[in-house]
């Protein structure tokens, strides 16, 4: 299938996602739908944000900035518009003008002409649009197909790590998938040095009363 345009400039992308995204990364002017995972949507922001791009989140009052920071999104360059009301399209278009990547809740309804105008503006500005929720009009759809958590027993422990199977549709309609952990989704700054670990593993006494149910062996040295 022929590409929709000639140039395919890529925005910086987290390596784990770049492997499965069509074209090898987030394409400027592209639009991506993330079906069911806010973490995955944040991971798409993390790549550009870690290299100093401005990001914007529109219409998502439940967006967790702490998780965003944990994934390497620079909060100083993150703009939140939690409630655009009835002016979703105007606000999104205004922000596409100024920021590199926009994350938004998928609109209820968008007329094809409006979508074409927004798409033209995305292409002209070289920005990318990520919607959370299924949206047929997007270039590619990503989703978490399987997810498994580690660290939680029945009444013991706490969530520590997660393994996910991520899928992405290709322009040909084929699905590509990758198995990743949470750490693989973190943005890495341009200089290549890994970001500081966002969550230090908690000491046993931090876990709260679960420590009471989980006897810990302390090795004396």
């Amino acid at each position: 299938m022929q590409a929709a345009r000639l140039d395919s400039r890529l925005l910086p992308t987290v390596p784990a996602l770049a492997r499965i995204l069509p074209g090898g990364g987030i394409q400027s002017g592209g639009s991506y739908a993330v079906r069911n995972s806010a973490t995955l949507a944040m991971a798409l922001l993390a790549g550009p944000s870690a290299t100093g791009a401005w990001c914007s989140v529109i219409g998502m009052p439940d967006f967790s900035v702490e998780a965003a920071q944990g994934l390497g999104i620079n909060l100083e360059r993150l703009i939140l518009v939690p409630d655009p009301g009835s002016q979703w399209l105007t606000v999104t278009a205004a922000l596409v003008d100024v920021v590199s990547i926009v994350l938004t809740r998928a609109p209820e309804h968008l007329a094809p002409t409006e979508w074409a105008r927004l798409k033209a503006r995305l292409r002209q500005r070289g920005a990318a649009l990520i919607t959370l929720g299924a949206w047929k009009q997007s270039d590619s759809t990503l989703g978490v197909a399987e997810s498994a958590w580690e660290g939680l027993g029945s009444g013991t422990g706490h969530l520590r790590a997660r393994r996910m199977k991520i899928t992405a549709t290709q322009p040909s309609g084929r699905l590509r998938h990758a198995y990743v952990g949470l750490a693989d989704l973190q943005g890495v700054p341009a200089d290549g040095s890994p970001l500081s670990a966002p969550h230090t593993p908690p000491a046993p006494h931090d876990i709260g009363s679960s420590a009471l149910f989980e006897p810990q062996l302390v090795r004396s040295s």
Partner: peptide, 13 residues
């Protein structure tokens, strides 16, 4: 009493 481990991605307002 704060939460250990990775932070959840959706915090309901």
């Amino acid at each position: 009493g704060r939460l250990p481990g990775p932070a959840p991605a959706t915090v309901f307002a």
